[in-house]
Design a protein around this nucleic acid. Structure first.
Lengths: 297, 297
DNA sequence: CTTAAAAAATCATTTCCAGTGATAGAAGGG
DNA sequence: CCCTTCTATCACTGGAAATGATTTTTTAAG
């Protein structure tokens, strides 16, 4: 049974005529006859009563229900793959925790407003886990740290950040080692990029076993920092958002540590679904470090 | 896009291998490759990631949803037409009112118990209307009076009835004209065969403008007759059922009037759906008048 | 009843493609 | 490293989808 045959069958029932169906489908009447006869012999039942107009028999009516649904699904499937077609279905995304907290809320909100029929699934994890999930086909795309990205996946930078040290009082320069030793730090929980940056920063300055409070909430971190509880390492753009509500002071980290790039890892573009295609289109193109620096102020 | 291609695609995703899919579908691996490549070129996207095991790309996962549904529908449709296959869907029946009241309750109850997944629609009307509806494809089958059945429809007798005159007192012979003149009759409403029989019977005996009460309920008719309200004309087999509950006396009508045959009118058997097929199978084969006569007693 | 017009069936022919089998090349496992 | 296993490629074949011309059937009108 060919979809083509069902399409023709449907057209005949619709138009009530073999010839009209042929015309509608841009083929010839004898071809329509042949398809119908083939269907009838395959199913072992007369499907159409050849009068004027042609009418479906009981068996034909039964087939019509199937034919309609199958042809509809077929057309839908084609439409979904046609460039410019409406994307449907779901989009399975992965993200590092910090990115999920800092950048995705705005981005996903805008995206789902633009494509309300797309269901977005978001899963968080470490860069390594996420990369593996994309490779295994469990995720469509993942936001990961540039350094962790592996081979055979398409990578595209989306966020280029300047990390800054954040505190409640002015930070004219990097605090002395003595001060760092007695300063607590606030960070997201283990496995996140920014937290690792803190550890590297302090290790460079020979600060052993730093006290690091782990908060799951960005608001909590910022609030506590502004209350003088300690220091934090955060993306400059994020801090900028909080400037209006909190009294915060920042100090850019040295380039080697303070320059972080987040990339989106996906399978090769040729295998993207329409949903993934429009999602990738919706992602920001990261500007050079310059403008980001400006925001830091 | 061929259903066959979708079937193959599904098998590949399922088994995780082109070769295994080929084996499962009893074809060769090169054929599987060809089908997948054709799909990919038609849709303009890579659908499968050729690793071990083969995994669907984002685009492939999208197609998989469609492929599954289409292949399932296809298999369902085939199964529904296969002789001996489970009938599904609905059965649109038509019936004269009296037949619907007298014979169908038992018959349809048994039928729907045997085939619970079939939805039965029953519409009542005159023989002429019903025949036309079957011809037009609006009904799958109709119970009509044998005399009214037309050409080009398949007819099969199902009920052969002896009509009897029913009263509350013994009816050794047909009542005199004088008595008929003052006797009310009870019948189903206009348009029904039995009622017409009453009118013919009385016309033969030159009884003008008979008083005919029209009841919609068989129970009401039988009850009122047994209470002495008047006479009725009913199928003998029906009266037999009520003998236990009511004190009824009967007199067979003369052959010309009393012999009625109900037939089922359908399109030609070759165009029957499976549902209609099993329904026709479930219908009783009418015995000759003999046994029916016996029931009259 | 006859005739004209329209529609479906039939048929010969062409074209295309699903399926086959053999082989080459790529990826993994011991 | 070899050997196995998997997919891609290729030439070929059979079958059937599509085509155009023609016949047969049906329908409506005169």
């Amino acid at each position: 049974m060919l979809i083509r045959s069902l399409e023709i069958f449907r057209a005949v029932v619709d138009t009530g005529s073999f010839s009209a169906a042929a015309e509608r489908l841009h083929t010839v009447q004898s071809n329509v006859t042949a398809h119908i006869k083939k269907l009838e012999s395959e199913l072992g039942a007369h499907l159409l009563d050849r009068r004027n107009p042609v009418v479906a028999t009981p068996a034909g009516r039964q087939l019509l229900a199937y034919a309609s649904r199958i042809v509809e699904l077929h057309d839908d499937a084609l439409a979904r793959f046609r460039p410019g077609g409406e994307p449907l279905g779901e989009l399975r995304l992965g993200s590092m925790e910090t990115t999920a907290a800092v950048h995705l809320p705005r981005l996903l909100a805008a995206f789902s407003r633009r494509w309300p029929q797309l269901a977005v699934h978001l899963r968080t994890g470490t860069s390594g886990e996420l990369i593996e999930a994309v490779r295994a086909g469990q995720l469509d795309a993942a936001f990961v740290a540039a350094e962790d990205a592996g081979e055979e996946l398409a990578l595209r930078p989306v966020f280029r950040e300047r990390l800054v040290l954040v505190g409640a009082r002015p930070l004219p320069a990097m605090p002395e080692r003595a001060e760092l030793l007695r300063t607590p730090f606030l960070a997201f929980r283990q496995g996140c990029g920014y937290r690792r940056t803190i550890e590297l920063l302090l290790a460079e300055r020979r600060v052993p076993a730093p006290r690091i409070h782990e908060f799951g909430s960005l608001d909590a971190i910022v609030g506590c920092v502004s209350a003088g509880m300690g220091l934090a390492v955060l993306p400059a753009s994020t801090v900028a958002q909080y400037r209006q509500r909190f009294d915060l002071h920042t100090l850019p980290l040295p380039d080697a540590l303070g320059q972080v790039t987040t990339v989106v890892a996906t399978p090769p573009p040729a295998s993207w679904s329409r949903a993934l295609e429009v999602f990738m289109d919706s992602l920001p193109v990261p500007e050079d470090a310059g403008p980001t620096m400006k925001e830091v102020g």
